[in-house]
């Protein structure tokens, strides 16, 4: 295999990435490569840089040093390129971020119409298809404020899928949800993983990590401390920091 084949296999590649907020270093020398179809779960204590890392991947945050390549595009300050990358990378936020002034179906239709320039009718068809996949087609004409948190997050996932992304980023997708709504969102994510979607998920849902992830990344103080398949990660953690973190979140 040639070098370029190795590169093209990695849909996301971070090399020696640093990120500062003022004097505070949020990311320290991050190296991570994600292959097509891979599912990565990122965990770690709050403030460890996990959200910052995935926000750098679609440039909601700009990295200060190192190199990030997404789907063959290196992330630089070139705006055209950024929009192109973003339209290939779906993102789901902790706080859903549905557009409150648009109905559910219009939330889903907006980006395909504006970015992909598809017709209104086609955008609606695609939107309904994905609303069916997240099992809430009957909510299409309601507004976000009329839905429960779990339903809103499923809509947010469907909204991202409408752009037919090559990668999906999840930034603590279940942290803002009431406990009884977590599983309906995780079920949708599990289905997505089964269909072969490349996913990076920041979450503390260790059951999800165990059953879905190819690799679990543990971050602390802006560094990747450990990265291993779930079996290895949970049963045989290498570093003391990982052991401490796991003991804290798995005991209760």
């Amino acid at each position: 295999m040639s070098d370029s084949d190795v590169m093209s296999e990695n849909i996301i590649q971070l090399e020696n990435v640093d990120k500062f907020f003022g004097d505070f270093q949020a990311l320290k020398n991050i190296n991570l490569s994600v292959k097509k179809g891979e599912r990565i779960v990122v965990c770690g204590p709050s403030g460890s840089g996990k959200s910052t890392m995935i926000r750098c991947i679609n440039r909601l945050e700009e990295h200060n040093a190192g190199k990030i390549v997404v789907n063959g595009h290196e992330l630089t300050s070139d705006v055209k390129d950024i929009d192109a990358v973003r339209s290939e990378v779906g993102m789901v936020f902790q706080s859903f971020n549905l557009f409150p002034h648009l109905s559910i179906v219009k939330n889903l239709m907006l980006a395909p119409q504006l970015v992909r320039k598809v017709s209104k009718a086609e955008a609606r068809d695609v939107a309904m298809k994905y609303l069916e996949r997240v099992k809430i087609p009957e909510q299409a004409d309601k507004y976000p404020s009329q839905l429960s948190g779990g339903q809103q997050q499923r809509v947010a996932i469907a909204r991202a899928l409408c752009m037919n992304p090559k990668v999906m980023l999840f930034d603590e997708p279940t942290s803002a949800l009431d406990p009884e709504m977590i599983s309906e969102v995780l079920d949708v994510m599990t289905d997505l993983a089964k269909e072969g979607m490349t996913m990076i998920v920041v979450t503390h849902e260790m059951g999800f990590a165990r059953s879905v992830a190819d690799s679990v990344v543990f971050m602390d103080e802006g560094e990747i401390v450990e990265m291993n398949p779930p079996q290895e990660f949970f049963e045989n953690p290498k570093s003391e920091r990982t052991k401490l973190f796991l003991s804290q979140i798995l005991t209760h």
């Binding site: 679609n58 909601l60 929009d83 973003r86 971020n97 557009f99 907006l110 504006l114 947010a156 752009m163």
Partner: peptide
């Protein structure tokens, strides 16, 4: 206008102008 909504627009690949016209402006008007 909630910053998260602008970020959601960015993450979907909307241009600066489209974000202003379709997300920021309608919410700001209200």
């Amino acid at each position: 206008v909630d910053r998260g909504l602008k970020e959601a627009g960015s993450a979907l690949g909307l241009s600066v102008t489209d974000r202003f016209i379709y997300i920021t402006a309608p919410i700001a008007i209200r």
